[in-house]
């Protein structure tokens, strides 16, 4: 309706300086978040804020190893975020499996399932390293290379194929239905 390209630098600046994090700690790296958010390292200086709801969040922190069970939640939560959205994988495990390189139940390459913009190596990365990663992400947002959300949209078939290979087709519905008998059982018990 209105041509907003003129204001694009302003928007990029706002996006860069106002990264809201999904407060959804998916692995052991979540323990690094408190020092990052509190007075020692204070991420709020950069306008970053933990945010419980994914609908208004921009940055998804994958903090540590990912199992198939958490990956399902990660994908669902990631898809709920509005574009543009960024993913920062945190630690070696999402990158290549890390110490779980031969585990039967850990995801070795997270970027086969959702696009990852920045990966921080280390087990665990120190808060300084995480801040470095965030700094890198900010630079990437500024020069337009943090385009994971674009890649996810363009190559959705590929990501979907990988997800379905791992979980089997129709996994969302299956996963949802899995808990219904349990819920029903619980209801009966309450009565």
């Amino acid at each position: 309706m209105v041509d907003w390209r003129l204001f694009e630098p302003l928007f990029e600046f706002a996006r860069k300086r106002s990264l809201w994090i999904v407060a959804f700690c998916t692995g052991c790296g979540g323990i690094e978040m408190p020092p990052l958010m509190t007075s020692r390292y204070d991420l709020e200086r950069f306008g970053m804020m933990p945010n419980p709801a994914p609908r208004m969040a921009d940055l998804f922190l994958i903090t540590g190893y990912v199992t198939p069970k958490t990956l399902k939640r990660i994908i669902i939560t990631y898809e709920m975020q509005p574009d543009p959205k960024y993913v920062l994988a945190h630690g070696s495990c999402p990158l290549n499996g890390g110490i779980y390189w031969d585990a039967y139940n850990a995801i070795k390459h997270l970027d086969r399932y959702i696009p990852v913009d920045v990966v921080i190596a280390g087990c665990m990365p120190r808060p300084e390293a995480v801040m470095d990663g965030i700094k890198k992400l900010m630079e990437m947002i500024e020069n337009g290379t943090a385009d994971g959300w674009k890649r996810y949209r363009e190559n959705y078939e590929w990501y979907k194929k990988n997800q379905d290979e791992l979980f089997g087709e129709g996994w969302r519905e299956r996963e949802a239905r899995r808990w219904i008998p349990w819920l029903m059982d619980k209801k009966k018990k309450e009565k």
Binding site: F24, E175, R177, W179
Partner: peptide
């Protein structure tokens, strides 16, 4: 002035990442 909206069903709401169906 904002971007266009897309309609989502009631099952596509945030349930702490859990997928749900209408049976829930």
């Amino acid at each position: 002035l904002g971007a266009k909206v897309r309609k989502v069903p009631v099952t596509d709401t945030y349930q702490a990442g859990n997928p749900v169906t209408m049976e829930y």
